[in-house]
């Protein structure tokens, strides 16, 4: 007799993960390499500031919004923060996820309790809904939104939703929900190199360039 849920889970943990991983890792490397190999010309103007130092600094400092701007796009700013932080906590501080990193890279770090993980998940989901809402209603967001944006929003929400349902056994067979959870992550991984999800890696490169360009001139960034 076959246990469909179990088989699906094993497929998700086995071949599906391998396929997703290959597309994910290969695709990201491809796109990052595509960026770097293009290169840029050496800047011949004598530097006033230190481009490298400011580039590196900007990778972090750009995480803080400029004063006075939050009020003009509160959903995007606040929702964006909550989503990213919530997703980050749920992804990196839930013990089963850490176990994956331990298995893959041999690194480990302390996990956090269920209350924090689940609150983070719930908040991230709510933030995501708000972000989707703003894409429908806010004229700026609406004008920019493409299919890619909705796809990415939905794909980032599904792992949170299915994970929450699986852990809390809200409905459905828990094994099946866990399989769905892993499959939803794999969908996210597969979409990753083809969509704006790439920003999760390229943001650091972009911020570095931005900081370095400004820093070379001794200007703020």
């Amino acid at each position: 007799m076959n246990n469909q849920a179990f088989d699906l889970l094993m497929w998700a943990r086995g071949p599906a993960f391998d396929i997703a991983l290959m597309i994910f890792a290969g695709g990201i490397v491809l796109r990052i390499v595509e960026i770097f190999v293009l290169g840029r010309k050496k800047d011949l103007a004598p530097a006033k500031g230190n481009p490298v130092a400011q580039g590196l600094k900007t990778i972090f400092s750009r995480s803080v919004p400029r004063e006075g701007l939050v009020k003009f796009a509160p959903i995007t700013y606040i929702g964006g923060y909550i989503f990213h932080i919530g997703f980050f906590i749920a992804f990196f501080f839930f013990a089963p996820h850490i176990a994956l990193f331990t298995d893959a890279f041999g690194v480990s770090w302390p996990s956090t309790g269920r209350v924090i993980v689940e609150s983070a998940t719930a908040l991230a989901l709510l933030a995501l809904i708000a972000l989707i809402y703003s894409r429908f209603t806010d004229p700026v967001r609406k004008a920019l939104t493409t299919f890619d944006d909705y796809l990415v929003l939905v794909l980032s929400g599904l792992p949170l939703l299915t994970g929450y349902i699986a852990v809390n056994k809200l409905f459905g067979d828990p094994t099946m929900m866990m399989a769905f959870h892993i499959l939803s992550v794999e969908a996210l991984m597969i979409a990753f190199p083809f969509t704006k999800l790439m920003h999760a890696f390229s943001f650091a490169i972009s911020r570095y360039y931005n900081g370095a360009i400004q820093g070379r001139k001794g200007a703020e960034s």
């Binding site: 701007l69 700013y77 700026v140």
Partner: peptide, 20 residues
């Protein structure tokens, strides 16, 4: 060049540039 490729790769269509 590389910065342009990186910038377009990174854009998430958030529109926060509009308010600036």
């Amino acid at each position: 060049d590389a910065p342009v490729a990186s910038f377009f790769t990174s854009c998430v269509n958030c529109g926060l540039c509009a308010e600036a």
